[in-house]
């Protein structure tokens, strides 16, 4: 039963929707909503990043750059030039997609360390532009961002934001799950296994890699735009290399090649620092220990490891009950 819910598609989507719908019962005040919204926004980035890192097997250490393009694109167009926020968000998303497409073709021909270096450089370039062009971006001190207004009505209340972000997260997960189960998704997983083998059976490796790179950039950019409007203030800290690493860590922590893993990873690593504040000086140590422990005992990440555990239990129980035919693998 539990294993059924841990499988992708229907069961997982229903569980996530139920969780999003019921969570407000436990959110006592706006602070809890605030954290929940940040979890949602990080989860959206991670679901997109996981398509690239987890499924297609391409590393990106520059995703904070796309997050930044979305955030600052929206912020500058909506705040400095008075664009309607939704139009600004659309323009920023298109810009992120265009940059990902233009940069993706040459750099995705690289592999391993070289690809990591190239994406890292991309993120650093975006960061440098944002922190030096202070006429537009406010420089290192950051800039104020207009609220997300539709017509004359501004979305400010965190309780409303929660539903917007929740709905978008569901849409993001739904799209990712469908993409993975499509022929494109299978092609991506083939690439992950062996690029040469994939090309031998007729998968256009470059096209697929560029496509998934663009998709993940769009995810990051949209989350960035929303984050800027929700926060009302944005600084280049969100565009740093460190933030890129944080995003990859969330994906790895939750479990690569698991869409729900990405959501779990984002939720865990966003809420843990809030939960651990009473530890004061020891906070970082405990956070580090939790992460190390997870990676040692669940090397594939939280969700895949738990899934495997459940499958093993079920198999063992089935085998003990009767010599029945083995059920198929969960994933």
């Amino acid at each position: 039963m539990a294993a059924r819910f841990a499988t992708p598609r229907a069961g997982g989507m229903a569980a996530l929707a139920a969780l999003i719908a019921l969570l407000p019962l436990g959110l006592r005040n706006d602070y809890f909503y605030d954290v929940a919204i940040l979890v949602g926004l990080n989860a959206i980035v991670c679901v997109g990043l996981n398509l690239l890192v987890g499924y297609a097997g391409q590393i990106s250490l520059g995703h904070a750059g796309f997050f930044g393009i979305g955030a600052y694109g929206s912020a500058i167009l909506a705040t400095r030039y008075g664009w309607p926020p939704l139009a600004a968000m659309l323009a920023a998303t298109l810009a992120a997609a265009a940059i990902a497409f233009a940069v993706g073709r040459p750099i995705l021909r690289l592999r391993g360390h070289y690809l990591a270096m190239a994406t890292l450089a991309l993120g650093v370039i975006v960061y440098m532009v944002i922190s030096t062009e202070d006429r537009f971006t406010g420089g290192p001190d950051g800039m104020t961002v207009a609220p997300l207004a539709i017509g004359g009505w501004a979305l400010r209340d965190p309780r409303l934001w929660y539903w917007v972000v929740g709905a978008l997260l569901l849409a993001a997960v739904w799209f990712a799950l469908n993409l993975i189960d499509s022929p494109t998704g299978r092609a991506l997983r083939a690439l992950h296994g062996s690029e040469v083998a994939a090309e031998v059976v007729g998968v256009d490796a470059t096209r697929h890699k560029v496509m998934v790179f663009v998709v993940s950039a769009v995810y990051a950019s949209i989350a960035g735009s929303l984050n800027a409007h929700f926060s009302g203030f944005i600084t280049p800290a969100k565009v740093t290399f460190l933030h890129s690493i944080e995003l990859v860590t969330m994906v790895v922590f939750g479990g690569m090649a698991s869409t729900f893993g990405a959501v779990v990873g984002a939720a865990a690593l966003t809420t843990l620092p809030q939960v651990l504040t009473p530890l004061k000086d020891y906070e970082m140590m405990v956070l580090g220990a939790v992460m190390m422990g997870t990676m040692i005992f669940m090397p594939r990440g939280v969700v895949p490891s738990l899934q495997a555990l459940l499958t093993r239990r079920r198999d063992a129980a089935a085998a003990a009950a009767a010599p029945a035919p083995r059920p198929g693998d969960g994933q």
């Binding site: 602070y31 605030d34 950051g142 984050n227 926060s231 203030f233 800290a237 969100k238």
Partner: peptide
């Protein structure tokens, strides 16, 4: 030093 964390 993170503005987002500061706000939260």
């Amino acid at each position: 030093g993170d503005a987002e964390k500061a706000r939260t």
